[in-house]
């Protein structure tokens, strides 16, 4: 009894470690990517409206500004951190996100989707300053505007990516990167749930031939694509 009095109740860190150990934290992102030409985006949106859960309310729109920061620690590969904020809801908290490298492990070839670790936290607008003080520098930034759909725990983003142009507020004077919308199908889940990949593959099949959703490792893309 007396011992119980002396030791503090489990700390937040302890419960976090326990949660990590029992593998209940959704820190893995299962991802498929593709694109659709501007001319066909209406057809895709129409099809998604039919396929997804939020049929009655219609798709949710978003208009975000994302900045990617990097910091070089002792390792050769820089650590990447992304800050995202909603341009259409300036009062919303910012989002700080860590995305790991795509897992390359045993059986990765057989896996239907990219699997990478992903951790999100909400934060205040001073995060940019904070990161800078920490020694991070901004690598690049872009504007992403589009629609979000849900189907079960799947999230489907159809978004247009814009370059930031100099000297102008982000709302106008932005230039699209390509004549296509980026389409992303993702699920956040604890690791090891490879059934999810099958579900996603089945959903991706339903969007063919409109969109080819695939696992794309951007590190190994042919350089010829680069503008």
């Amino acid at each position: 009894m007396s011992q119980d009095w002396g030791t503090p109740a489990t700390t937040a860190f302890d419960s976090l470690t326990a949660a990590l150990r029992s593998n209940i934290i959704p820190n893995q992102e299962y991802l498929l990517q593709g694109s659709v030409l501007d001319s066909a985006v209406e057809i895709l949106l129409h099809r998604l409206r039919g396929l997804c859960d939020n049929v009655d309310s219609g798709p949710e729109t978003f208009h975000d500004h994302e900045m990617c920061f990097s910091i070089r620690g002792n390792q050769n590969t820089p650590l990447l951190l992304r800050v995202r904020r909603a341009l259409d809801y300036p009062d919303m908290p910012y989002q700080l996100r860590y995305i790991g490298q795509p897992e390359i492990g045993v059986g990765d070839k057989a896996r239907p989707t990219i699997v990478r670790s992903s951790i999100d936290v909400a934060c205040s607008s001073t995060v940019v300053e904070f990161l800078t003080e920490m020694g991070c520098r901004m690598d690049f930034e872009y504007i992403s505007r589009g629609y979000m759909f849900r189907k079960g725990r799947m999230k489907i983003l159809v978004s247009k990516i814009f370059k930031m142009s100099q000297g102008k507020p982000p709302d106008n004077g932005v230039e699209p990167i390509s004549q296509s919308y980026l389409v992303e199908l993702s699920i956040l889940a604890p690791g090891g749930q490879d059934v999810i990949g099958e579900d996603m593959k089945a959903f991706a099949e339903q969007l063919k031939p409109l969109v080819q959703l695939e696992k794309i490792d951007y590190k190994r893309l042919p350089m010829a694509m680069a503008p």
């Binding site: 990517q33 030409l37 895709l44 872009y142 004549q179 409109l210």
Partner: peptide, 18 residues
């Protein structure tokens, strides 16, 4: 309705800032 090269350029842009 979709273009592979657009997919690649978009993914590379979002992923690496290309």
């Amino acid at each position: 309705t979709s273009s592979m090269s657009d997919t690649h350029s978009l993914v590379a842009a979002v992923g690496m800032g290309k």
